[in-house]
Amino acid sequence: MFCGGVDPLLDLCVIYVARSFSRYDSQIEPLPPHIKDKLIKLLSAHGHISDSNISQVLHPGVMKLDLRECDISDVSLQLISRCSQLKEINVNARKGEERTSITSEGISALAQSCPNLSVISMKRCCNITDHGLLSVTRNCRLLRVVNLSGCSGISDGSLGALGQNCTFLQSVDFSSTKVTDDGVRALVSGSCAQTLKEVLMSRCVLLTDRAVEYVVLSCPHINIFVFHGCPLVTGWSREILERMAQSNKLKQVTWTIY
C-alpha cells in the first residue's frame, strides 16, 4: 500500500528536474508557480541559476530570491524586475569575493519595478553607487532590512537617502564602506531613527566617536549595535555606551577601542 502522499512524490520530481535542469529547460516555463518556487529554491542553493536560465523559472508572483551562490549580472536583475510582488532579494557576493557584475543600473531597474521590496542584501557588490541606492530608497518605501556591507562604491549620500526615504527601516549594515560621521548623522536624522533596531558599521575607517554618539542618542529602540574595527573610535565611546546600557534595551554590542 502506498503511504507517501502526493507532496513527497512532487518534491522528488522537482529534485530530479533540478538535478537535470539542462535536459528539461524547454519544458520549465509552462510549469505552475508553486513548482517553480521549489525549483528556484533548489537551483539557487546550488548556484545553478544564471543569466541564461533565470527567465525560465521566474514568474510574476515570485516573492523571495536568494541568489548569493549564483553567477548573475544586471541582465538577471532586468528580468527579475518583471516580478512586481518581490519582497526579498539577496545578491551578496560569495564569501571572500566581490561581485562586479551587478551595478547601479541593474539595481535601479529592479527597484523601479518592485515597490514591495522590504529586504535587500547586496554585500560586497562593489559597483553599486549612491545613484543605485537613491533609486532603491525612492521606489521601495517599505524597506525594513538593507545590507550594504562591503559596497565600496557608496558614500554618505546612500545613508542620507535611507534616512530620508525609508520610514520603516529596522536594520542597516554599512560595514567596510567609506561613509563618514556626516553620513551616519544624515541616516539617523530621518524618521527611520524611530524604527531602527540594528546598526552595523564595522571596519569603517572614517567613522569617529561622533558616529557612535549620533546612533545612541537618536535611535531609542536600538538593541544591536556593532562598530568594531573602526580605528578612529576612542575610549570616549565607552561612556556613551554605558548610558545606552542603562536602558537595558541592548541585546548585542560589539566594538573595538584603539
Rank of each mutant, 00 (worst) to 15 (best):
Q78Y: 12
Q78C: 11
L79S: 08
L79R: 13
L79G: 00
I80L: 12
I80H: 01
S81I: 02
S81W: 13
S81N: 05
R82G: 05
R82S: 12
R82N: 12
R82D: 05
C83E: 03
C83F: 08
C83T: 05
C83L: 03
S84K: 15
S84Y: 13
Q85L: 15
Q85F: 15
Q85K: 15
L86S: 07
K87A: 10
K87R: 14
K87T: 09
E88S: 15
I89L: 12
I89F: 15
I89D: 09
I89N: 13
I89P: 13
N90R: 05
N90T: 02
V91F: 05
V91Q: 00
V91A: 02
N92C: 13
N92T: 01
N92P: 00
N92F: 00
R94F: 00
R94G: 01
R94T: 03
R94H: 03
K95W: 08
K95N: 08
K95M: 07
G96T: 05
G96L: 11
G96E: 06
G96Y: 07
G96R: 09
E97F: 08
E97I: 00
E97L: 10
E98A: 02
E98T: 06
R99N: 06
T100R: 15
S101D: 09
I102L: 02
I102W: 00
I102A: 01
T103A: 08
T103D: 06
T103L: 11
S104D: 03
S104L: 05
E105C: 11
E105R: 15
E105Q: 14
E105P: 01
G106V: 03
G106W: 10
G106S: 09
I107R: 02
I107V: 14
I107F: 06
A109H: 11
A109F: 12
L110P: 09
L110V: 04
L110I: 03
L110H: 14
A111Y: 14
A111N: 14
A111F: 09
Q112A: 14
Q112K: 15
S113F: 06
C114T: 08
P115V: 04
P115T: 05
P115I: 08
P115E: 07
N116T: 06
N116C: 10
N116V: 02
L117F: 10
L117S: 09
L117A: 07
L117K: 08
S118K: 11
S118F: 14
S118A: 07
S118L: 06
S118V: 05
S118T: 12
V119M: 04
V119H: 13
I120L: 10
I120R: 02
S121M: 08
S121Q: 10
M122Y: 00
M122A: 01
K123C: 08
K123G: 10
K123W: 01
K123M: 10
R124Y: 11
R124H: 11
C125Y: 00
C125F: 00
C126Y: 00
C126K: 11
T129F: 03
T129G: 02
